[in-house]
């Protein structure tokens, strides 16, 4: 099925079955490998993208349901104010270890900050608990979100 999607502001056309999750379209068809495969059942968050600004797990999101929607991936999130703040705080506080889950963590955090500019701990829990980090960077993720929100420099 020929489909056109707006991804990071660019129209992208590709051929994919309607039931194919967006994750595999991004990675295997479009070669946009920043979005990661972790579990395939929406339990780890590594595949998080934004659909019209909302964080969604692309591993269970059929691409056929997306016509007319706007997709933002880790490759494009730095162009949004919240995404840029998150990326900066992530580097300032040296959040990242192996980094494999961090595309998803950054996407979830950017969505959180866009919707809730000054999140407290319960907001962070609500927005970030679906993202697993096996390296265990949670303490720094929390600190970095708070720093990104406050605009404080390290």
């Amino acid at each position: 099925m020929a489909t056109t999607l707006t991804i990071n502001g660019e129209a992208k056309s590709f051929d994919a079955p309607a039931d194919m999750p967006l994750l595999w379209v991004l990675r295997d068809v479009l070669g946009m490998t920043g979005t990661k495969f972790g579990c395939g059942i929406a339990q780890c968050g590594a595949c998080t993208v934004h659909i019209d600004g909302q964080p969604v797990r692309s591993c269970v999101l059929p691409v056929g349901s997306l016509s007319g929607r706007s997709v933002t991936t880790i490759e494009g999130i730095g162009a949004t104010p919240a995404g840029a703040k998150v990326q900066k705080a992530w580097l300032d506080l040296e959040v990242i270890q192996c980094g494999y889950c961090q595309s998803g963590q950054v996407m979830s955090a950017a969505a959180l900050l866009a919707a809730t500019p000054n999140p407290d701990d319960s907001d962070i829990d609500a927005a970030m608990s679906g993202n697993i980090c096996r390296c265990g960077t949670y303490v720094r993720i929390r600190a970095a979100i708070k720093q990104a929100a406050s605009g404080r420099q390290s």
Binding site: G45, A126, G130
Partner: peptide
């Protein structure tokens, strides 16, 4: 807590 960990994503 369980909901935000395992359920809310879907």
């Amino acid at each position: 807590i369980v909901f935000q960990q395992a359920c809310v994503s879907c």
